[in-house]
Design a protein around this nucleic acid. Structure first.
Length: 305
DNA sequence: CGGCTTTGACCTGCGC
DNA sequence: GCGCAGGTCAAAGCCG
């Protein structure tokens, strides 16, 4: 009886260290697993970051190419226009037809011509000729959602609507706006839906702003995704984002395009771009969800292996 | 209550 | 001179 109890005790004494080793091993295993999970996360984040940087590089390169292309288009357009002007001055009979063609080109391609002297029939029939020559007129086509029935073109300026009319030949009404940022600003804007495509708004700008663009400060703060390069806008936009380009002053435009090229190449700009991208991505819940899915997917994949 | 939009009335220029 | 169409005005209504 005493012997068996002694044996039990000795067995007990031997059993305790074995359990402790087992526990230690268990803890170690958990730690290793935890480290492994962390490692998996780090790898996933690194891969994601690498992919984003690649994407950023690609977009930057594309941006530079597009800027260069735009510069070339502007130069070609101005050269062609100059030739047309010279040609029509030598052939007055062709002048009217050529002016009409230029206006159509402006309208169709959204290139703002700062139309001093050349104008549509609609505009010319209403205003005295000399006044008309002084007033730059530009047209802008803006694509909107078909369901969006408002005649609002977001171009960075503040406008006050002062009238609306149904015009002949177009069932959709024409809205009349005045620039209300500065009381002395003479710029007016007419907005009407295109007859051909109801989803396209045709905005006609008359005059030049004599004040800075109110939304410029907002756009540089990074709170929106509007890219602004000038004052009087020619824009191609969707309901979600807007790209506004100043093509009213061809020389300035090409210079500014070159300047922007130089700026794009600079490390400061790249740094700014990265910060903006990071800011936009981190604010985007979809991105966060995608990142989480990628990490968890990677982790599950490694657990299987 | 102030600012903005709407909308009918009015003005102006052009063609016949 | 008249009619038409585009452009503007201004009172009323709406909204934050």
């Amino acid at each position: 009886m005493e012997f068996t109890s002694l044996l039990d005790t000795s067995l007990d004494l031997n059993a305790k260290p074995a359990l402790r080793i087992f526990d230690d091993a268990q803890i170690l295993k958990e730690e290793v697993q935890s480290d492994f999970i962390q490692l998996g996360r780090n790898v996933a984040v690194k891969e994601e970051r690498g992919a984003l940087m690649e994407e950023l590089k690609r977009v930057s390169a594309e941006n530079i190419e597009l800027t260069e292309l735009l510069t070339v288009i502007c130069e070609n357009y101005n050269e062609l226009r100059k030739q047309v002007t010279e040609y029509t001055s030598k052939n007055p009979a062709l002048k009217r037809k050529a002016e009409s063609s230029i206006n159509n080109a402006n309208t169709n391609h959204g290139i703002n011509g700062s139309d001093k002297g050349s104008s549509s029939d609609e505009d010319s029939c209403k205003k005295p000729r000399e006044e008309h020559l002084k007033t730059p007129i530009s047209r802008v086509h803006v694509r909107t959602e078909a369901s969006d029935l408002s005649l609002v073109v977001k171009d960075g300026y503040q406008w006050r609507k002062y009238g609306q009319k149904v015009t002949r030949g177009n069932p959709s009404p024409r809205a009349y706006f005045k620039c209300c940022f500065a009381p002395t600003c003479p710029v007016k804007k007419k907005v009407q839906r295109s007859i051909d495509d109801q989803s396209i708004l045709v905005a006609t700008y008359e005059g030049e702003h004599n004040h800075p663009q109110p939304s410029k400060l907002e756009s540089t703060s990074g709170s929106n995704r509007c890219m602004t390069l000038g004052t009087a806008p020619t824009s191609v936009s969707s309901s979600r984002s807007t790209i506004t380009l100043d093509l009213t002053k061809p020389k300035q435009t090409t210079d500014s395009a070159r300047n922007s090229n130089r700026k794009i190449d600079s490390p400061e700009f790249k740094q700014y771009l990265v910060e903006q991208m990071a800011s936009i991505l981190t604010k985007d819940p979809n991105f966060k969800a995608s990142l989480a899915a990628a990490i968890s997917g990677k982790f599950l994949q490694q657990n299987k292996a």
